[in-house]
């Protein structure tokens, strides 16, 4: 206990490790971590949970700064403008892969090297308890009967509800009114208060509310049932048209600029791989309903490309893009 107390005093007096020894190898000074989303969000938690594990392995501190805004475009622009020395990390989610087609930014993960994609999430469709539906099929039929009258919670262009909503529009005739909120948390809040009727959401944001019975889950946006949600139908059961787009979901990773020296990339890949395998981290991530990936380099690049091609074309077919994926050489899935 006393050591912990000393630690706290040290924290508040001096939150830094003393002068760093000048080792010959990377890294020789503090790293700077840029988080794509605000404090307390899903990306923030993923990033801040892994840094304390990475720091001792790297032997340097990572100073974390949230740089939210512009749907993630602020953070990518910032890190892309930093020197390519491997001291600037980007902790990001899936969003930049849509920035080109939404005309938010010309920078996406093609400009970055995936040090590690820690995990991906699964989307679910949740509804307010007062609604009459018991499955997604009910909702789809109701929506066909009363076009535009049902309110869907969303989080703005390129966000998960927007993509899932577009996916629904592509596969079935699905006309609902989308009301955008500042994030999944505020969206769920509005759902609980009955200000929207249903919402596609990441499982991590909805899991506890499902468990407590404060919202009901209509479907899992996946090909198979999830172990954590027994008895909830995968969306492809009633609507097989979905299966070619699945699995689909958000993901969280750490990136550096493409042209960072190989030695630094290798060191980072090795460290993050080890950190993302730590039992406590895995347990925390899975507890939030994420599926661990822990992939890097070429494997991660392939994943990023596939994700981009699927999602960008779905949005394009639903008429939700500003520019065709073709313009940017994003291949059709």
């Amino acid at each position: 206990m006393n050591t912990r107390l000393l630690g706290a005093v040290a924290a508040l007096a001096l939150l830094t490790t003393g002068p760093a020894g000048h080792a010959a190898d990377y890294p020789t000074k503090d790293l700077q971590g840029t988080i794509m989303w605000g404090a307390g969000g899903a990306t923030d938690v993923v990033a801040r949970a892994i840094t304390p594990i990475v720091e001792p392995l790297l032997g340097q501190k990572i100073v974390m700064v949230n740089r939210a805004g512009g749907g993630g475009a602020i953070s990518t622009a910032f890190v892309a403008a930093r020197p390519s020395d491997g001291y600037s990390l980007l902790f990001g989610a899936e969003n930049p892969q849509l920035h080109k087609v939404l005309e938010l930014s010309q920078i996406d993960y093609a400009d970055f090297y995936p040090v590690n994609i820690m995990a991906r999430g699964v989307a679910v469709i949740v509804a307010n308890n007062d609604t009459p539906w018991t499955s997604f099929k009910d909702l789809a039929e109701d929506a066909a009967k009363r076009p535009g009258e049902i309110k869907m919670g969303s989080t703005g262009p390129g966000g998960l509800p927007h993509v899932v909503g577009s996916l629904l529009k592509t596969v079935i005739d699905f006309n609902v009114t989308s009301v955008p909120f500042d994030g999944e948390g505020p969206g769920i809040t509005a759902l609980l208060g009955g200000h929207v009727d249903f919402m596609p959401s990441g499982l991590s944001a909805a899991a506890e509310h499902i468990k407590a019975g404060r919202v009901k889950v209509l479907a899992v946006v996946n090909n198979e049932e999830l172990a954590s949600l027994p008895g909830v139908q995968p969306i492809s059961t009633d609507f097989p048209g979905f299966s070619k787009y699945l699995p689909w979901g958000p993901f969280y990773g750490v990136f550096v600029k493409r042209d960072v020296p190989d030695a630094a990339k290798a060191k980072l890949v090795e460290t993050f791989k080890q950190a993302a395998s730590t039992a406590s981290y895995v347990e925390m991530m899975e507890g939030r309903g994420n599926i661990m990936m822990n992939i890097a380099g070429d494997e991660a690049d392939a994943f990023l490309k596939k994700w981009q091609s699927t999602t960008a074309w779905v949005l394009h077919e639903a008429g939700a893009t500003k520019a065709s994926p073709e313009t940017f050489g994003i291949p059709k899935p």
Binding site: G38, A39, G40, G41, D44, V45, R48, A49, G185, A207, E208, H209, K211, A212, R214, S280, E283, M284, G287, R288
Partner: peptide, 17 residues
């Protein structure tokens, strides 16, 4: 919002439960 993130990191599950 940040404290909720901290609870997650400490293995708790903030929510109605």
């Amino acid at each position: 919002a940040v404290i909720i993130g901290a609870l997650f990191i400490h293995g708790l599950k903030p929510g109605p439960m």
